[in-house]
Design a protein around this nucleic acid. Structure first.
Lengths: 343, 343
DNA sequence: TCTGGCACTCTTGTGGCGAGAGTGCCAGAC
DNA sequence: GTCTGGCACTCTCGCCACAAGAGTGCCAGA
């Protein structure tokens, strides 16, 4: 059953007070802050109901209430108003990002630093997912007989390189021809489209084409085979020691362990890429036992038609989502523009 | 004045006991473990002397002694015997490293993971320093008029890429010619040698050479200009919560802050590269106030004639240096061989 | 020169106690 | 019926005192 208006208002007050103070909230405080003009005693009744419905939790009998993940979920979905960034803050973010080094890695690292600085949480930035980027050009370079460096240039200045072992009789000229052929065949497709097409072409080549094309396709297939680990930039781990929920070292260790589990972090961020919008994941929702006490926000970046990567922050369930989401969104927008400008 | 043999033996006992237990050591314990056949009372006298000389510290009047950084320095320089790795451990390291992905980044990340797993400390791996790597080949690719991607392939499979803005009338053929010229000029030199020579050539080009060569050199100069941030792989931060010295959250925050200061971490590791040997840095020796309570070990990797990068661990001053140094050395050796095999 | 003995210091753990915060429930007011 | 003031109850937290334990420094004697 849906919450009564009063109940919702009490819950909102509790959530916002808890976000601000990280301390259990008592009926007296709610009575004063809620604007409902009810006495603490009445508030207590409402709070008892909310507790029964799973929105509030009581650390112990005389300690006030703490909003549950469920309460945060309701707050995020139905109550929260995002607080737009001040112009001055936007300027600061844009300026800092402009000061990043020239390489893609430098830029993403800087984004990560900016986010952790502005959120005072741990920040995550995932490098563009190759599969969604457009192929610009491939080059093969003969290092020595039998060893070829394949270099794939993708949209946004991403460069993928892979060392390939080949038959020793492949010449530099063969490689140039192969590259030309492949560039012609695959130009401007996304990598995942290339992957699909590659399989089809390889089958065709078996029967129809000449040796050269078969070779070119084989090279490409090898260069593409295993998606290499996506790069992930993490910053701001030092921030968490300042948060009251991490005064307990054990809790801190849990977060550090989560942060070392790259696969799980990627999963968290990928969701925002798949849905192409800002995504909030709270505690249990992550399907990850060790994430129970944490929350995350993530936002995709990339041009309008398809996301390239995502950025996010991770912290205690009690985060100031209304303030942080706009920070992420704005940063993602600036980053997208920067990448766009590259090509 | 040098220590008496007895004093040194007592000190060694204390250091080793402290490394094992992380607890202050009392005279009774030393009397039992030292093998000196002295009573606790005599040991107490010796310990008083050592305290006076700055080798021991007393947390409070009745708590046993703790070895100072100075004591660890003495221990490392004059007493410690490195404990060679068991064959089984060597095998495990080699196997794990073999399971790394194909790209250079994958390999270094895996090294970092292996080190943190085997040391139970925080591990650091620094990517090869470009300056010391040999130039293999440069390629320029025209992305669109006025925008060129420069790709520099270095020894060991390192690939540097940089986006350059150029005059819009440069053609793809110009670029090929430039690359050929540069590859001819700089092949097999180290990057820092190239940098030096580049300056000289640029001056010559002003007066003597034609437009094309000037252009090639200018491109190269741009591609080389700012050394981009070196990549640094950190792993095992979750390990530190298990160490007694970090039961205090503040201490932990200090370490996390150090770990986010990439410049300082690079300085720590660079020392082992400059001296081309394993280096131990203890507390104050780092010239870094916030490093007072920590220690580090680092080892260079790379072929015999010049180091490419370094790897290390960082943890409390009380680390098992005798066990960890061989782990680092062996890992560095395996890594060097892997890079060598690439080219 | 070494050792046993002894007084002294400091930490750590425990239990008791009071203050403070917050709750739940009830009887009465509106 | 709904709201409220009052009250008893519970639990945490800080404080204090106290005892046990670990370790020291020093001294007198072997």
């Amino acid at each position: 059953m849906p919450l009564l208006e009063r109940e919702r208002q009490v819950l909102t007050t509790i959530v916002e007070s808890y976000i601000a103070d990280a301390a259990p909230v008592g009926s007296r405080t709610v009575a004063k802050k809620s604007g409902l003009n009810l006495s603490p005693a009445s508030i207590r009744n409402i709070m008892a109901d909310l507790t029964e419905q799973g929105y509030l939790e009581q650390p112990h009998a005389s300690a006030g209430r703490i909003p549950s993940a469920r309460a945060f979920r309701l707050y995020i979905n139905e109550v929260m108003r995002l607080r737009p960034l001040a112009e001055s803050q936007k300027n600061r973010i844009a300026t800092l990002l402009g000061a990043a080094g020239p390489e893609l890695g430098d830029i993403l690292r800087q984004v990560s630093r900016i986010l952790s600085g502005h959120s005072l949480q741990v920040s995550l930035v995932i490098a563009p997912r190759h599969a969604d980027a457009r192929w610009k050009r491939i080059e093969f370079t003969l290092i020595k007989p039998g060893l070829v460096m394949a270099i794939l240039i993708l949209q946004g200045g991403m460069v993928l390189d892979r060392l390939l072992e080949t038959s020793p009789d492949i010449t530099a000229d063969d490689l140039v021809a192969s590259a030309n052929y492949l560039n012609h065949l695959f130009g401007e497709m996304t990598v995942s489209e290339v992957r699909a097409k590659l399989l089809a072409e390889l089958r065709k080549a078996e029967s129809q084409f000449g040796e050269l094309y078969r070779r070119a396709l084989t090279l490409a297939a090898e260069a593409f085979a295993p998606e290499s680990t996506r790069e992930l930039f993490v910053d701001g781990t030092a921030n968490i020691v300042n948060q009251p929920e991490f005064s307990d070292v054990g809790r801190m260790g849990e977060l550090l362990r989560v942060l070392e589990n790259r696969t799980k972090l990627l999963e968290l961020l990928d969701k925002s890429m798949d849905e192409f919008k800002t995504v909030f994941i709270l505690g249990e929702e992550s399907q990850l036992e060790s994430f129970r006490d944490f929350g995350s926000i993530s936002t995709p970046y990339g041009p309008g038609d398809h996301p390239l990567g995502a950025l996010g922050v991770i912290g205690p369930v009690r985060m100031d989502y209304a303030r942080l989401a706009p920070v992420l969104n704005y940063t993602a927008r600036v980053l997208t523009k920067m990448l766009d400008r590259r090509f």
